[in-house]
Amino acid sequence: MNRIGILFVLTVTMVAGGWAQELKMPVDLDKLAAKASETTEVTLNGHMLQLAAKFMNDEDDREARELVKKLKGIYVRSFEFDGAGEYSEADVEAVRSQLKPPLWEKVVGVRSKRDGENAEVYFKTDNSDVIAGLVVIAADPKELTIVHIDGPLDPSDLEKIGGDFGVPRIEAQAKPKPVKAGAR
């Protein structure tokens, strides 16, 4: 294969990736948008985040700006359906299967058999103490949300976002052991 061919393949691979290098958006997941009654799709790479940070000049945006400046990417796919069963476990598994140790650590995994509501939180770990990325998978019968934040996050960042980001300070600092639970 000549140089142009190699370059073409590399370009297509990079563009088709969609998500950051390590976490790829399954094609089937994007197909869910056709079935969903409401879809939220956010794809922001490092360049777009830096651009957004430039315009976060309000005092209210200060904390978000400081966080966003550090990040390499934010990717969200959220689908709301009118009825249950519009997405399959395979759709979720296509993402989940990429979140394996040692790179990814599952810090929260709650599954409710009774109402079918699941929540999983993964931290990307590296050699340092800083969390290098975050993935949240939240699923219930009529809704599926996958969030991937790529970039360094410290516990205070997790607290700041949205006033209370949601991950408790102690748990985040201590990198808590996975919590797996059955029905509530």
Binding site: T40, S78, V121, L158, I161, G166
Partner: peptide, 14 residues
């Protein structure tokens, strides 16, 4: 939007 969704989902997990 992304941070709001992330915050909401993390709160649910919590």
């Amino acid at each position: 939007i992304a941070l709001r969704i992330t915050g909401a989902k993390l709160r649910i997990a919590k």
